[in-house]
Design a protein around this nucleic acid. Sequence first.
DNA 1: CTGAATTTTCAGTAATTTCTGAAAATTGTA
DNA 2: TACAATTTTCAGAAATTACTGAAAATTCAG
Lengths: 181, 181
Amino acid sequence: MKITEMTQSLILHFGEMGSKWGLNRTLGQMYALIVLTEEPLNADQISDALQISRSNVSMGLKELKSWNLIKLQHIQGDRKEYFTAPSDIWEIARTLVVERRKRELDPTLSMMRDVLLSEASNEADEYTQKRVKEMHDLMEMVTLWSNELQSMSSEKLSALLKLGEGISKILDVKDKLLSSK
Amino acid sequence: MKITEMTQSLILHFGEMGSKWGLNRTLGQMYALIVLTEEPLNADQISDALQISRSNVSMGLKELKSWNLIKLQHIQGDRKEYFTAPSDIWEIARTLVVERRKRELDPTLSMMRDVLLSEASNEADEYTQKRVKEMHDLMEMVTLWSNELQSMSSEKLSALLKLGEGISKILDVKDKLLSSK
DNA sequence: CTGAATTTTCAGTAATTTCTGAAAATTGTA
DNA sequence: TACAATTTTCAGAAATTACTGAAAATTCAG
């Protein structure tokens, strides 16, 4: 498993970024390798290419599976397991958003609900609940969006993102539609 | 500086989440305390409330400043520096999105541009560039959005988020408007 | 079934990140 | 300007997280 210089530098970069995202260096490198390589890869190839232990690869793959970021593939006449990333980059992005939401928002949303159900017995708690309520409502909306993204086709997602700065105009149009009813 | 049980449990939770976000436990706790407390807090109060060293608070505040997440305030007749979070929760959210974009997307975007400018000297690199191009274009659109969010008022942002599942319909409306031209 | 190939687990170690106390730097007032 | 109050810095210690090799578990062809 030889790696071109181009891929090598991308892998290093994604390794660094990996830790800024919820992953870690090795996971970032592994996924970069898988995404940027056309052919399916097995664990030994990954271990070899990234110079990390076979067991580390195994744990990394487990993690990537739990993120739904890789697809398992079998190759005729080969007993090893091979992995690829989805060919549609939008699918990867969608998965990332949804999985991060699960990990970063859902637990907080649920604990905030508990706080909002409890009784505020003094002024400080009243202020706290007010703030929590605002955060809760905001995060709930983000969650709704994330669900919406999850169910959108890549084409639709792409169209939505392409709106870019046009989004303000769309909002205005919507207001007009509503007010003219 | 006494903390109610409610705030205490929120602080602990945000501490845990802090590491899942780009921050770390202490930073998460510190920001939770500041956001959930109505009064401005000084470093000693934070150190005391969270049971962490004064120097750790100093470093945490420095980090929160670099994220633009806190506001410095002076209290008449007191030489200490006091800190608060923005009172508008939307402003906090907007700042978070923008700052995370700066840290998580911008560097990658720039390195991808370099890769795209370089010459692919073999088939593997051609595939790699194709993938990089797709990722680049996607991330660039996300960046455009993030810029757009940055310049939107809290009201407009709120309206946009409230669209929630309505976003698909809006897209359809936009298509109709365009095709009827 | 058997056993070789492959993958997973896990305890110990290595690397990284976070935290602290002491000292240095800065700030503001008298 | 002098100095006490306050904040910042930073080297080393503590805590956390990531990685490895060896062993256990699983898988599957014959």
